[in-house]
Design a protein around this nucleic acid. Structure first.
Lengths: 347, 347
DNA sequence: ACCAGACGGGTAAACGTTTACAACACGTTT
DNA sequence: AAACGTGTTGTAAACGTTTACCCGTCTGGT
C-alpha cells in the first residue's frame, strides 16, 4: 500500500507516482491516469510522516489556548481548525490553563511534532518559552497588549475602543457608580482591560474608587463572588462591567439569587461576546471581540510565514478592534427620568 | 541537531543514543549520562515523524466529535487531550457537524496521519466510513445505542436510567402534561432519548401526545423555537424535558421572553449536564452524562487496544449510565397542593 | 588455560516519501 | 546530418529514527 506498489501497478517509477500525486503538471496525462486509477483502486493514502520527514514540513500548526472549556475558545479552535484542514494542514491543540508546567509541555510537544508554526492565542505566555521556539525558527503569532514583540507576528487587541464604548453607554444611561470585575490580574490581557476601563472612566470625568474594582478570575464562579462582594458595599454600584462574559453571567446569576433585577436595578456589561451571550436572561450587552476573526488572523499569518524568509516577517502587526453590542442587560439608572426628547419642546 | 550529532558528541553510536533516549535499561550508566548530557546541552528533541515512520506507530489518537462549539464537547476534548499527552500521545481533533462531507474528510485525515486509534464520540457516524478505518485495522471506539458493533469497542450509553428518573421526578411534582423537545431525529442518540422518554412515560401510565413531541436541533435556537410552538397549543404542557441542555437553555430563555416563570409556571429539565447548567437562571435540573467519564472510557479503550492482537479486542463494551441531578428549574405543578406530609396527620 | 555463554555496544538496513540529477527521446537549428 | 535544446521519465540519495544482527569482551566453569 505504498508508493512503490502503485508505481509497479501503473508501470511507472515512484518518482512519477509522486509527481502525479502532487499535481506536477508536466507529466503525461496518460501516465497520470494510470497512476490515479491504480491509487484509488488500491485505496492508497500517502504517509504523512514520510512526506514530512523528507520535505522538512509537517504541515501542522500549533494552536495554544488558555482553556478549552472556557466558551470563548471553542469558536477559535473551530475556525482555526477548519482553516487548517481547508489548507491541508493539521492543528495541534494545546490548552495550558495558564499553568507554567503545561505551557512548557505544550511547547515541547510542538517542537517534537515539528510544527510549521504556532499561534499563541492565550494571554499569559511566558516569554522564556517562546525563546525555545524562536531558536528553532518556528514562525510565531501571538496576541499582544504591550509593546510589539520582535520576530513574531503580533495581533494587537484594541481593548480600548470597546470598553470606552461600554463605559460611555453606561454613562449615557446616567450611571455614575460603575464597578469593574477584573480577570486574574497576572494576565496581561486582564490588566489591559482594567486599564482601559480606568482610562475610559477618567476620560469622561467619572471616578472608579478602588472598592469598585474587584478581582475575578474569568469564571462564572468568580462573577458570583464578585457581586457578593459589591453588594456588601455601603454605596453599591448601579452598573457592573465585567472582564469577560463568563464573569458577567456569574454576576447576573447571583443577582437573580439576590433578587436584584437586571437590568432595572443593576446594569451588567460583559466582554468577549461569546455565542451564549445572546441567550442568557436577559441577553447580555457585551463588548465583542471576534473569535473567528482572531483565529483567521492568526492562521493567515502562519500561512504567510510559511515560505517567507525569516527576515521578511519580522514583527508584522495587525489590530483586532473590539466594539460594544447592545442587548438587554443595561437600562437607565433606577429613578432617572428619561432625557426629554427634542420633540417635547416643540409645542 | 539529530541523533547522529548527539552520538558524535557523546562518542557513542546512534544505536546507543536511541537506546538511552528510549530508556533501554541495559546500557552502561556512564554512557547514558554522556548521551543525556549531550542531548540537553544541544537542546535535542527527537523527530516524531522519523520515529513514527520506522516504528509504524504515530502515537496519535483521533477524536471525532459533533461540534466543538457545542458546550458538551470541550470537556470531552479537554479530558481526552490531557490523557493523551499524559501518555505520550497526541490528539487529532475532528469536528464533523454531523455533515457527511466533513466526516469523510475526518476519516481521510486520520488515515493520512496514520493514527493508532480513533474515538468516535459523535452520534451520527456513517457506518460506511468506519469500514475504511476497519480495513486498515485502526482500533476504533464509539458510542452506540443500538446493537453492539463488532470489531469495535462500544460505549453504550444508558439514556433510559436518567430519563426515567427525570420523568418520575416530574410526575412526583404532579406534572401530567409533559412535553419533550427532541434533537435532530436523524441522530441515533436523539432518537434513543426520545424513545427513552416515551417508554418512561408509558411505564407510569402517562400519555405523550404527538403535539407534545417537538423536534429541536440541540441548539439554543432550537429550544427557543420549540417553546414558541408548545405555547400555541390549546392545552399547554406544564413541564418540558429537553434532549440536551442547550435546548433547555433556549426554552428557559424564551420563557423569560414570554413572561412565563420557570419553574413556577413551567418546569424544565435538560440533558447532558454541561458545566454551564449550574449557572443559568434558574439553575437547570438535568440528566447528567459525564463527559469526562465518556472521554476516559474512550481513551482507555484505545490505549488497551494498542498492542493487543486484533482478535482479542473484538466487541468490548462498557456502559455509561446517566442520572438525574436536581437543581432549581422544576417545581410542583401550578395550583397543586403539596402532598400532606405524614406529620400533618399526627395531631 | 580454554571455551561457552552472556552481555553491552556498533553497523547498517529499513520505514515511505521527495527531488536532484541523469538519461533519453524528440524536434529544431545550423 | 550533426549538434543542440527541450521536455518527460527514471534512478537513487536523502530525511532521522529504530532495531536486527553481529562482534568483541568478560565471566565462570571445566
Amino acid at each position: 500500500m505504498d508508493i512503490r506498489e502503485i508505481a509497479k501497478l501503473a508501470r511507472v517509477s515512484t518518482a512519477t507516482v509522486s509527481r502525479v500525486l502532487n499535481g506536477v503538471p508536466t507529466v503525461n496525462p496518460k501516465l497520470a491516469k494510470r497512476v490515479l486509477d491504480a491509487a484509488d483502486q488500491r485505496g492508497y493514502v500517502p504517509n504523512t510522516q514520510a512526506r514530512a520527514l523528507v520535505s522538512g514540513k509537517s504541515r501542522t500548526f500549533g494552536l495554544v489556548v488558555s482553556e478549552i472549556t472556557n466558551p470563548f475558545f471553542p469558536q477559535i479552535v473551530e475556525t482555526f481548525g477548519n482553516l487548517a484542514v481547508a489548507n491541508g494542514y493539521e492543528m495541534l491543540l494545546a490548552s495550558t490553563g495558564n499553568d507554567l508546567k503545561r505551557m512548557e509541555l505544550a511547547v515541547r510537544r510542538m517542537i517534537e511534532r515539528r510544527v510549521d508554526g504556532v499561534a499563541i492565542l492565550t494571554f499569559g505566555m511566558e516569554d522564556s518559552l517562546l525563546a525555545d521556539l524562536r531558536v528553532r525558527k518556528v514562525p510565531l503569532v501571538g496576541v499582544v497588549v504591550g509593546p510589539t514583540v520582535p520576530g513574531v507576528t503580533n495581533i494587537r487587541i484594541d481593548y480600548r475602543n470597546g470598553i470606552r464604548q461600554a463605559v460611555q453607554h453606561l454613562a449615557a444611561l446616567r450611571h455614575q457608580r460603575i464597578a469593574f470585575v477584573t480577570g486574574p490580574l497576572r494576565l496581561m490581557s486582564a490588566m489591559a482591560r482594567k486599564t482601559a476601563f480606568e482610562e475610559s472612566m477618567r476620560e469622561i470625568g467619572l471616578e472608579a474608587p478602588p472598592e469598585f474594582l474587584v478581582e475575578g478570575d474569568h469564571t462564572v464562579e468568580g462573577g458570583v463572588a464578585a457581586l457578593g462582594r459589591l453588594v456588601r458595599l455601603a454605596k453599591r454600584p448601579t452598573a457592573i462591567l465585567c472582564s469577560n462574559d463568563m464573569t458577567a453571567i456569574g454576576v447576573i446569576r447571583e443577582a437573580y439569587e439576590l433578587q436584584i433585577n437586571v437590568p432595572n436595578q443593576l446594569s451588567v456589561v460583559g466582554f468577549d461576546d461569546i455565542h451564549l451571550a445572546q441567550f442568557v436572561t436577559p441577553p447580555l450587552t457585551t463588548v465583542q471581540m471576534s473569535q473567528s476573526e482572531l483565529a483567521t488572523f492568526a492562521f493567515q499569518a502562519l500561512l504567510a510565514a510559511r515560505e517567507r524568509p525569516a527576515q521578511a516577517r519580522q514583527s508584522n502587526e495587525c489590530v483586532l478592534v473590539t466594539s460594544l453590542v447592545l442587548r438587554k442587560s443595561t437600562a437607565l439608572v433606577l429613578g432617572a427620568q428619561p432625557i426629554p426628547r427634542p420633540a417635547d419642546f416643540i409645542i
